[in-house]
């Protein structure tokens, strides 16, 4: 095995505001996770800590392995090696169902909504409420409305309108709201603002912030440095499948992140911040 980047020393203090049951363990921790597709080693010994109540941004260039990493956490790909700890306990997430059972919800890059179904139907897809074998539309509509209201998603005309008729930001909001409907503890989002205009991006980032303020752990993949620094509490940078840097967001600045993304290392340091986030050595 290639030597893996030393990312977080175990001694790193727990971030404040953590909501994990076990005081010492973060909500989610990855240790040395590997994933290989044939000849492509997509993830190499990835270590990562995702605490509750915080937004963790995952940065990295195209093909760095961001999507593979979140799909591994979400149970879409099985990891080839390494450990996944949930509240400090080793778990095996083999399917999206396993992930959902733990409280992991994913908002995919392509949103995965059914255009022909309405907002309520999409939010409850796969977990419909029934009463005596028939769908309980009233209960579902009521909960969906409560969730949307609690997230201040009030821009939709009717929650019974088909998703096809929503704007990009509204679709994103529905996908996010869907993920919090389930008492989830970790919400993962792949490029939630990629296709959005300025106003809609602000709305979605607002929503992301609100989730974290509720105590959820949020993991967000983004290429957009503005978004990352606006919303993230913690940053993690992938480079060619390796985790080359991770730590509180205030230890980074744009240039440092770009260095890590493009070369896998950075010689800069932030004058006003503490230690430079630990970086692994570049492969090859």
């Amino acid at each position: 095995m290639v030597s893996t980047g030393q990312v977080l020393s175990p001694a790193e203090p727990e971030p404040t505001g953590s909501t994990s049951n076990d005081q010492s363990a973060p909500l989610l921790e990855l240790r040395g996770v590997n994933k290989r597709f044939g000849a492509v080693q997509a993830l190499r010994g990835v270590d990562l800590v995702v605490p509750g109540g915080q937004v963790t941004a995952l940065a990295g260039d195209n093909g760095a392995g961001k999507s593979v990493l979140i799909k591994t956490i979400a149970g879409i790909h099985g990891a080839d090696g390494g450990q996944v700890l949930w509240n400090g306990r080793a778990v095996h997430v083999r399917s999206p169902r396993d992930a959902a059972a733990l409280g992991i919800e994913t908002v995919y890059q392509d949103l995965a909504l059914c255009d022909n179904l309405d907002i309520v139907q999409n939010m409850f897809l796969g977990r419909e409420r029934t009463s005596s074998a028939l769908l309980d539309e009233e209960a579902m509509e009521t909960s969906a409305r409560e969730t949307l209201t609690s997230l201040s998603v009030t821009t939709v005309r009717s929650i019974r309108q088909p998703v096809a008729s929503l704007s990009g930001g509204q679709r994103q909001a529905v996908a996010i709201a869907k993920s919090v409907l389930w008492n989830s503890k970790l919400v993962i989002m792949d490029e939630p603002t990629a296709a959005l205009g300025v106003a809609q991006t602000a709305m979605v980032l607002d929503l992301v912030r609100r989730l974290a303020d509720r105590g959820l752990a949020v993991m967000i993949v983004s290429h957009n440095m503005n978004d990352v620094f606006q919303v993230a509490d913690r940053l993690a940078v992938l480079y060619l499948g390796r985790m080359v840097a991770a730590g509180p967001a205030d230890q980074f600045d744009r240039q440092i992140v770009v260095d890590y993304m493009t070369t896998g290392e950075s010689r800069r340091r932030r004058d006003d911040a503490g230690p430079v986030p630990p970086a692994g050595e570049v492969a090859r």
């Binding site: 995919y108 139907q121 897809l125 796969g126 769908l135």
Partner: peptide, 28 residues
């Protein structure tokens, strides 16, 4: 009409027709 409009099975049929991948990810 009842089966397709008012049961889980029916909802899943529509979901698969609308976006099979979304339905799969939703655990259908």
């Amino acid at each position: 009409t009842v089966l397709l409009g008012r049961t889980r099975f029916g909802r899943y049929v529509y979901a698969i027709g609308g976006n099979a991948e979304a339905a799969r990810r939703a655990g259908v």
